[in-house]
Design a protein around this nucleic acid. Structure first.
Length: 588
RNA sequence: CGGGACGUAGCUUAGCCUGGUAGAGCGCUUGCUUCGGGAGCAAGAGGUCGAGAGUUCGAAUCUCUCCGUCCCGACCA
């Protein structure tokens, strides 16, 4: 049990101006964290307790599925990363560390980096220590601080430069084993988030910089989330928007017959889809082809979409480039022969086709059939462009961004879209890292194989904030039982009164014996202040003792979530408190 | 990195447009009165107005540069 006067819970009446969303304001107002700098936060005692509780729940669920805890350094020799498979893509997000005393004029690469994740550390370790199929499978995890130079930290702990993460890495002898490990982690995650009192849904996700074959994200639906999820209630399909596809293009769609001969026509000053859709041209956006120019690892390539569609950049990942970005107008003109606004990909109109790494067409342009596109000549477009006859496509794929309302692939029902916070991510990595680092094992036929890996992350500090975001009201936080910094708050309205103080101690002992963590508000504050603070910090059960009640021989029960208040006779304190705590703990 | 907003006491902020001795509320300190939902009165402490340069007789206020913070986009747990 803890006395409020002997810990440190600096509550605030007003939210600091740099907090925008409810959970961020409450983190600060309830005295859980304080900001050091952008994306850098100190956990104050109450906040730290929540971190520890969440960590412990996570640990229990990981252990239950057979994962093994260890702890790896935060500081990594840069060579681990340079030798790994994703240095080019990952270096931008890493903080660099020069060893103390490093002078000017050192080499370009730093001596060390701060770990954003640990594949580059665990894989060499396993390579060194595990060589036999007899020692597999293994799944190692740790709970610790991660460092990422986030392009834009925001919303408090939601996206921070330094954050607490549980990361796990599984090593299996074959794909079937890896799938089993993956499923165990999905199960652990589901159980963990449930115990945190969070509603999550698992969605299919893009693998991003991690690479690997497939992945699921655990999402907390919330308007302040950074991600869009796409889902169909009928079929059960759910995916991150970056990965989502729809049934917009029928599989059996016949190829459109040419509508006529290619025809160039002048379009002076017309450089947008919208302008071409307006009078006098009146070419609807879904009858236009949009040509985008990107650079993949320095080489230009084209993406063709319908005029009405947007590119989903994450979908360029499978093309195999490490880094890609939109090309600038200066880079585009020498290749295509025109400035943006008049671009196209019709055979024979591209000035320097040999420079291109590929022309990638979105399936949906088949819906256009015959349409209009730029002539690669400033101020001119081409009409009667036929998809199969005229476009020089090297590869078809799904590149467009799905929109809400499009039909689900399986059920045909309209897809829905919602914002969500990503709190966990499971990846099936395959052999990308094990091959690169030589993490191989010998099987019972004396054959050598790369281990099949998976990796699994949970943003624990983000989870903490997601719980607050999902569970609060106008008065403050409403902590779920399992993750509350303390579960019972005993409010002493008359700390100067010996009888009140004695009763508070007795109630606290009863609650503690029944299994709850207890905070006693013994401050010499006015009742109004104590009640406001109690609601703000949001402990699940409040027991109030005051002179008025003492005279009547009662104290008060109040549940934070339901606001339900009950007067209890002091004589029945023992059974009432014990039962309340046990019931609440059992439900959680 | 692109676009936008902002930076005045521990916190929330007024003042800036139209240059002329820096104000309030909360919080803090002391005293008295209060005492079951952020009390009242009285007295008090607390500010290089983010930093630097410039314009000016004079800059929180106008100009420029830099730094920091927040919001929107790309990135991520």
């Amino acid at each position: 049990m803890k006395y409020w006067s002997q810990t440190f819970i600096p509550t605030l009446k007003e939210s600091p101006a740099d907090a925008e969303i409810a959970s961020h304001k409450l983190l600060l107002r309830a005295g859980l964290v304080r900001k050091l700098g952008g994306g850098l936060y100190t956990f104050l005692p109450a906040g730290l307790r929540v971190v520890q509780k969440i960590s412990q729940l996570c640990r229990e669920e990981m252990d239950r599925e057979g994962a093994i805890e260890l702890s790896m350094p935060f500081i990594h020799p840069v060579d681990n990363w340079v030798d790994g498979p994703r240095w080019t893509a990952a270096r931008e997000i890493m903080y660099r560390v020069d060893h103390a005393g490093a002078g000017k004029g050192r080499a370009k690469e730093p001596e060390f980096v701060l770990g954003p994740t640990h594949e580059e550390v665990i894989t060499p370790l396993v390579r060194q220590e595990i060589t036999s199929y007899r020692d597999l499978p293994k799944n190692f995890y740790q709970i610790g601080t991660k460092f990422r130079n986030e392009i834009r930290p925001r919303y408090g702990l939601m996206r921070a430069r330094e954050f607490i993460m549980k990361d796990a890495y599984s090593f299996d002898v074959d794909d079937a084993g890896a799938i089993e490990s993956y499923n165990r982690m999905k199960r652990a995650y589901t159980a963990f988030f449930l115990r945190c009192g969070l509603k999550t849904i698992a969605v299919e996700a893009d693998t991003g910089v991690m690479g690997g074959s497939y992945s699921h994200e655990f999402m907390v639906p919330a308007p302040v989330g950074d991600d869009d999820i796409v889902y169909c209630e009928e079929s059960g399909y759910s995916a991150n928007r970056e990965k989502a596809t729809s049934g917009l293009v029928p599989k059996d769609l016949p190829a459109a017959a040419p509508a006529g001969a290619l025809e160039e026509f002048p379009t002076p000053g017309i450089v947008t889809i919208a302008a071409l859709a307006a009078a006098p041209y009146n070419v609807a956006p879904d009858k236009q082809f949009k040509t985008l120019v990107y650079l993949g690892d320095g080489k230009p390539f084209l993406v063709i979409l319908r005029g009405c569609d947007d590119l989903e950049e994450a979908k360029l990942g499978p093309l195999g480039f490490q880094l890609w970005r939109a090309a600038t107008p200066e880079e585009i003109e020498p290749i295509l022969g025109a400035k943006p606004g008049s671009l196209g990909s019709v055979k024979g109109t591209i000035r320097n086709p040999a420079a291109l790494a590929g022309i990638f067409a979105d399936h949906a342009i088949r819906l256009v059939g015959n349409g209009t596109t730029g002539a690669n000549k400033d101020g001119f477009h081409l009409r009667n462009v036929n998809v199969t006859r005229d476009l020089a496509v090297t590869q078809w794929g799904d590149f467009r961004r799905v929109r809400a309302g499009e039909p689900d692939q399986q059920s045909g029902s309209p897809l829905k879209m919602a914002r969500a916070i990503e709190v966990g991510h499971v990846f099936k990595l395959g052999t990308k890292y094990s091959e690169k680092f030589g993490a191989v094992y010998t099987d019972d036929q004396k054959q050598s194989h790369p281990m099949v890996m998976g990796c699994y992350g949970i943003g624990l500090s983000r989870t903490l904030q997601a719980v607050i975001e999902q569970s609060n009201d106008a008065d403050g936080i409403i902590w779920p039982w399992q993750v509350a910094p303390w579960q019972v708050l005993v409010v002493n309205l008359d700390p100067a009164d010996a009888a009140a103080t004695a009763l508070c101690l007795k109630l606290a002992q009863l609650a503690e014996t029944a299994g709850a963590d207890v905070l006693i508000d013994d401050r010499a504050e006015r009742p109004g202040v104590k009640f406001k603070d109690a609601d703000l910090i949001g402990l699940p059960l409040r027991l109030t003792v005051g002179g008025r009640g003492l005279k009547e021989g009662i104290f008060e029960f109040k549940w934070r979530a339901s606001k339900e208040v009950r007067k209890v006779a002091i004589a029945e304190a023992g059974s009432a408190v014990t039962e309340a705590v046990r019931t609440a703990a059992a439900k959680a």
